[in-house]
Design a protein around this nucleic acid. Structure first.
Lengths: 177, 177
DNA sequence: AATAAAATCAAACAAAGTGTTCGGTAACGA
DNA sequence: TCGTTACCGAACACTTTGTTTGATTTTATT
């Protein structure tokens, strides 16, 4: 990939992130992004057709590393749920881009939706092992929703508790078998 | 209040609701609302300064009846949590305006935020009676988040289960003491 | 029924944002 | 070095916004 492309792409992402911490997504104009990123108007549109696609690209960028299936450097094995949750929290904490700034911003719910989509596929792999009477889709919704809320709370509290303890917390509070 | 005012206000609300079921909040223009409601441009702005304030007014209108502290016609006493949750679900089901259309729309998260605000104050009254080690604010987040997700799921499934059974479901799945 | 008050309307407006196109300039990779 | 590619800035037609104007109903009251 051309260095120039990467440079503009990063500049736009950074500008977008800066703006998102200051104001709501739907109040941010392309004009402002252009000014903040200091790129030409036509350049922006050659990279991203719309503001929505920019958001989309940025979310993929942000959440890719968090949910990638890599050998976990912190937790030995992540085949059990609790281990995988810790793993995920580790990645969130170590994420290079400031996730808390964005997830806790006025447009946080927007990113939460992307976040939840990833969580769905993650929890889906464990859903079979749970013994409960509630329907599967409800249970999934419940797990994803409460875990996402927990992450938000965790970030808001500056991640005082360790990923392991936090994951254990979550398991503890939810009757999943 | 003047009949004309009420008529315009209702027309705008209805137009807004119709549009919200078709497209996202931030893609809806004031122009479209005006056209759909068939009111003059200046009339709209004499009622609502901005689109955000219109949303705000409509949410208050929608959630007022759901969370008002009335003598419950369905559940005898609503001093216990489960009874209050049933009560809330009853109101949601009987709500005149189609809540599910809006809460499940593309802009559902927007309304969920308002919804959650009400839930917070509701759960706060019960929080003292819970015996658990997790911090109070985390527990609140957890309850509000998972209950809100449950309502969304419930609406999506066309409210097949009864309010009472659904509330019991929720209590059942959450370790709150 | 008459009247004063108030809400509505259409039209017009400047200002700001959108998305596209253009040719010129500069940076890249080979 | 040289062809390719990405960037820039300027201009464009177009839409949306929020405000103002003055004429036209509709309302509540007497």
């Amino acid at each position: 990939m051309d260095r120039r492309q990467l440079k503009t792409r990063k500049a736009i992402f950074k500008a977008f992130r800066n703006l998102l911490e200051k104001k709501r997504y739907d109040r941010i104009t392309v004009q402002e992004i252009i000014d903040e990123a200091d790129v030409g108007r036509s350049t922006f549109y050659s990279h991203f057709e719309t503001k929505d696609l920019l958001l989309n690209a940025m979310c993929e960028d942000m959440f890719y590393h968090i949910f990638e299936n890599d050998p976990c450097p912190y937790v030995g094995k992540d085949h059990d749920l609790e281990g995988e949750l810790s793993h995920t929290l580790w990645h969130i904490r170590d994420s290079k881009t400031d996730l808390s700034g964005i997830l806790l911003s006025d447009s946080g719910e927007l990113f939460m939706q992307y976040f939840k989509e990833h969580l769905y596929t993650m929890f889906e792999h464990h859903i079979e092992s749970f013994k409960t009477d509630v329907p599967k889709d409800f249970l999934l919704n419940h797990l994803v929703g409460s875990f996402a809320e927990m992450v938000k709370w965790w970030l808001k509290e500056n991640m005082k508790t360790s990923p392991e303890a936090t994951a254990k917390y979550f398991i503890e509070l939810t009757k999943i078998n």
